Amino acid sequence: MKIAVVDYGMGNLHSVAGSVREAARISGANAHILLTGRAEEVAAADKIIFPGQGAMPDCMAALQQSGLGEALSDALKNKPFFGICVGAQLLFERSEEGDTPGLGWFAGTVERFSDGLTDAAGSRLKIPHMGWNTVHQTQPHPLFVGIPQDTHFYFVHSYRFAPADPSVVLATSSYPDPFPCIVGRDNVFATQFHTEKSHNAGLTLLSNFLHWNG
């Protein structure tokens, strides 16, 4: 089984690839993990992991310049696909960050957190939302096996998913109000948080993905 971790020149890609290799080791998955920026290797892979970090306009520009956009759009149609952080935001139609069009796999937009957010005690919340936060599963999914309800995952983001179809929301987090943090449909699963920074919980998600047939 070939797993392509998509390299489009941005983000902590080697950390993601290292986490996927560790997930394969601990779960016994027979997987060849390839960090690649070549469209033909993405097309030849059995499963796709699409990480991202940084500004969405820069990420979309890198995809277009590299020719990976078409390969990713094709993979979304028929392969198990895991999007992470900006790699998940890019799956929506448009982001408020730079008014940037995405790949359009999910209907809806990506919106910036409002300024002036406060917690229950009235203290101001910083943007970006950064650190550990609980993830509340709203629908069952094969990738949640072994992950208790309200497990903590690690977030770094200023923008959040705003899907047009609430049925694609698989889990929420709160800052301070609930927001979608995992979305999915059919063969596609995408998280706002960073699996590679989420220790054992992140490795469990990746392990489940390696054994998932989509």
Rank of each mutant, 00 (worst) to 15 (best):
P180K: 05
S167T: 15
Y175K: 00
T172I: 15
V183Q: 11
L143G: 11
S167R: 15
S173Q: 07
F155N: 10
I182C: 06
A162Q: 13
P178I: 03
V145A: 15
V183W: 09
N187I: 00
F161M: 12
L170Y: 01
A171V: 02
A164R: 07
D150L: 01
V145H: 13
D165Q: 11
R160E: 10
P176N: 08
Q149N: 12
V183I: 15
Y159L: 01
F161P: 05
A162H: 13
P178K: 11
P178V: 04
F144S: 09
A190K: 05
P148F: 08
F155H: 10
Q149R: 08
Y175I: 00
G184L: 02
Y154A: 05
T151F: 04
P163Q: 05
A162T: 12
S167D: 15
R160V: 13
A164L: 01
N187R: 12
V188S: 09
R160G: 01
L170T: 02
F153E: 02
N187V: 01
V168P: 09
Q149I: 07
I147H: 07
Y159M: 01
V168R: 03
Y159P: 01
V188T: 09
V169D: 08
P163I: 03
Y159N: 01
G146D: 14
S173M: 07
F179R: 04
Q149A: 12
Y154F: 13
V188M: 08
S158F: 04
A162Y: 03
D186R: 14
V168A: 09
F144R: 09
G146E: 11
D186N: 14
G184C: 04
Y154H: 04
R185F: 01
V145I: 11
V188N: 10
N187P: 00
P180E: 09
H157A: 08
P166S: 13
V156P: 08
D165T: 06
F161D: 06
A171F: 04
F161T: 03
R160Q: 13
D186I: 00
G146L: 08
P178W: 07
T172F: 03
A162E: 10
R185A: 13
P176L: 03
D150S: 14
V168T: 14
A164C: 00
F153W: 00
F189S: 11
P163W: 04
H152R: 14
P166C: 04
V145D: 14
P178N: 11
Y159V: 01
S158K: 06
F161I: 02
A190S: 15
F144K: 08
P178C: 05
S167Y: 06
D177F: 07
D177M: 11
F155R: 09
P166G: 02
V183A: 12
S173H: 09
T151Q: 10
H152E: 13
P166N: 11
S158A: 15
S158G: 14
V183K: 10
P176C: 05
P180Q: 07
D165K: 06
F153K: 00
V145F: 07
Y154M: 05
V169E: 09
N187E: 00
V169L: 07
F144I: 05
P178R: 11
Q149G: 09
F189T: 10
H152F: 15
V183D: 12
P178A: 14
A190C: 15
P176H: 07
D165E: 13
P163H: 04
P178D: 14
C181P: 08
S158C: 06
A171R: 03
S174R: 13
F189Y: 13
I182G: 06
H157R: 03
F153H: 06
V183T: 13
V168E: 10
C181D: 12
